[in-house]
Nucleic acid binder design. Sequence first.
DNA 1: GGGTGATTTAGAATTATTCTAATTCCAGGT
DNA 2: ACCTGGAATTAGAATAATTCTAAATCACCC
Lengths: 136, 136
Amino acid sequence: MAKGIGVQGSGGLTRQRDAVLRVIRGSGEHLTACEIYEQARQLLPSISYATVYNSLKFLTNEGLVHEVKFGKGASRYDRETERHDHAICNACGKLVDFDLDLSEELKRQAARRSHFKPESIQLTLRGLCPDCRPGK
Amino acid sequence: MAKGIGVQGSGGLTRQRDAVLRVIRGSGEHLTACEIYEQARQLLPSISYATVYNSLKFLTNEGLVHEVKFGKGASRYDRETERHDHAICNACGKLVDFDLDLSEELKRQAARRSHFKPESIQLTLRGLCPDCRPGK
DNA sequence: GGGTGATTTAGAATTATTCTAATTCCAGGT
DNA sequence: ACCTGGAATTAGAATAATTCTAAATCACCC
């Protein structure tokens, strides 16, 4: 049998990793490591900054969370791990997830042009978010 | 009339900004600020690291280069400023530019789903680059 | 209760980027 | 040519983001 993996009540995650995962799942936003650390400390006051980073790396590798880099500053983490698309506001920098049905044909076309063996495709829209649109 | 803008021979760019721009345009790769600094010093030995950062910010704002964040580590800069698409290798992390004719209909669809006022859309393909494909 | 390997911890170290204050540079006016 | 003012550059310090290190702890197995 596999060696111990920490706590088993939480789906095989240690308390620390579980706390980090919970924070991410509990937020609609895309949080930075720093924000996650602050919130995780409320669930588990003894957790350290390094553990937050370790956990984020672990959870990302396991496919339980998703890392996103955009705009200014630190990486952010997303609870959404299914394929999805991104909209980024050119005015305020906000990132919003949404979902489009991108065709297989589009994927094949991208593969042909790039000479890559395709795994997934994702669309990014840049524009103005509802809060930044003029006239509203 | 506008006040002095440095040197005029180089299309209105100062020697430093021009050197940074030349380095980026002279490379097929997507360079980091650090790599750009090293190469720019060969064109202009007195240039400082801070000036490279300042110039990158300036050139990015002017739309003369493009900043790209992906994978591990520092931001990278791209000479390609026209709309284009990205392919990222899941094995080695390489990023390749390519170009697809994305329809207006797709853009409208993305705008509808995200509730953003669209400006541009871009596709990102993840997969395996030619060097990392098995069986080749 | 002890052994084992993975995990956590605190803090140091490293890397990436921005800031600061002093200096230099250039275009324009005299 | 000289002066002037604002913008750009410089070196280095400061800050932010992330990774590393070594020791302590933990959960599971015997």
